[in-house]
Simulated scan of single mutants.
Amino acid sequence: MRSAFASFMLCLLAAGAWSQTTAAPPLESLDVKVLNARFIALGTLKEFTAGVTLGAHRASLTISETLKGKPVKSLEGEISASQPQLEEWMALSTRLLIFRDEDDKPSEPMNLERPGLAVITADYKPLSDPVEILRYVKNVIRRWPEGKAPSVRLRLPPEGVALSWGSVGLLVPADERLEAYAVAEIRSKDPQRRTVGIDALRPFKSKANIDRLRLLLKDPTFTIVQAPEEYRGVELREYPVRERAYDVLREWKVEVPKLVLREEISRIATVKSLSLGVVGKGTDLGWLEKARNLRGLEMNAFEGLTTQQLEAVLRLKGLIRLAIPYAGIDDTRL
């Protein structure tokens, strides 16, 4: 049975497995937020004044516990919060989880007592209980003693959008769980899962992983991106698994042989209908004689048909339906 983590990762990655479209900025998982921070502490607001940065205030905080970084009893610096928020936090002695990144830019503390609090972990588990959040943060710090890790952007599944506040991606750490998952997925019999595994493998360049991706350069899976009925009887194929493996190997600066990533296959002898789009007076229709099984033909001839073009159409003995709207022939049964 597939593990819960593997199922989650497949769900996240599958939405973008067959395309490389650019999406909105991703949401940080709690794991990545913790790993990107140089300092994390639990504290309460003691006082605040106007800040230098727009939308920020200079705050003085009493620290009850330092989770990451040099332990301190108090902290001063700019935080992103409105004056009413700060007044409420100070009046109620609200417990705040403070994050400081390397650039020390003002950031909004996590209000652990806020109604409806929800944060998303790297395994897409929403946490709202302050005790669970603090325990999780400590576990991430313990699991990554060096304090930093590269991250990977994964696409959120449709059911995840409600928890993502409009974002369509989630940043997760590129750790050993992700690599193990990726290696398992590229061995799958499902071609979409193989592509998902390739995407997840990007941060893990190694000889073993290079060899694994080389095997996928001959993957037989293809998708039909242009039907022969819409492209002069020619079927256009793309090989997404090969292409994704090729892209990652090139990204890793690995020399790879010339590949067939797109291929045209003639189906003109068997195609039963064709839509030619716009046909001008200079368009050669002589190739239609190869369409021996053609039954339906549609085209837009704004300038009408030349004698040669009309003869090419009339030679189609099996044709039973012809549509040339701008020539006055509209869905004519022959």
Rank of each mutant, 00 (worst) to 15 (best):
P71S: 02
K70N: 10
P145A: 03
P126L: 10
A184K: 12
T66V: 10
D190Y: 02
N139G: 05
L171H: 09
G116D: 07
D129S: 15
K125N: 12
L127W: 04
G166T: 08
L127M: 02
L178N: 00
L96C: 04
K148Y: 14
S128R: 07
L154E: 10
N111M: 07
V161S: 03
G147A: 14
E132F: 08
L86D: 13
K73P: 00
N139P: 00
L163P: 00
G166F: 07
K125Q: 15
S60P: 05
K125S: 06
Q192E: 07
E146P: 02
G69H: 04
F99H: 14
K125A: 09
V172S: 09
I186F: 06
K105C: 08
K70Q: 13
L156P: 00
S93F: 07
E113G: 07
V196R: 01
T121N: 05
G147Y: 09
D101L: 15
D175E: 08
E159S: 12
T62D: 09
G160I: 12
P173I: 12
A174H: 07
A149W: 06
Q85D: 13
P150R: 15
A182L: 05
Y181S: 11
E87W: 08
P145E: 02
S80V: 13
R142C: 09
K148S: 15
E102Y: 04
Q83L: 15
D199C: 07
D103T: 04
I133S: 07
D103R: 09
R153W: 01
I63F: 13
R193A: 05
A81I: 02
L86V: 07
T94G: 06
L117H: 01
E88C: 10
E146M: 11
G77T: 10
S128M: 10
S82G: 11
N111H: 05
A182D: 04
R135N: 12
D103I: 08
V72R: 13
I79K: 01
D199T: 10
V140D: 04
K70I: 08
V131L: 11
P145H: 02
V137D: 04
G197H: 00
R153P: 01
I120H: 03
P191N: 04
L156R: 00
R114A: 15
S167F: 04
I120W: 08
R153M: 11
A118R: 06
E78T: 04
R193I: 03
L112C: 08
M90C: 09
L75F: 15
S93P: 02
A91H: 14
L96V: 01
R153I: 08
I98Y: 11
V119G: 01
M110Y: 03
V183M: 02
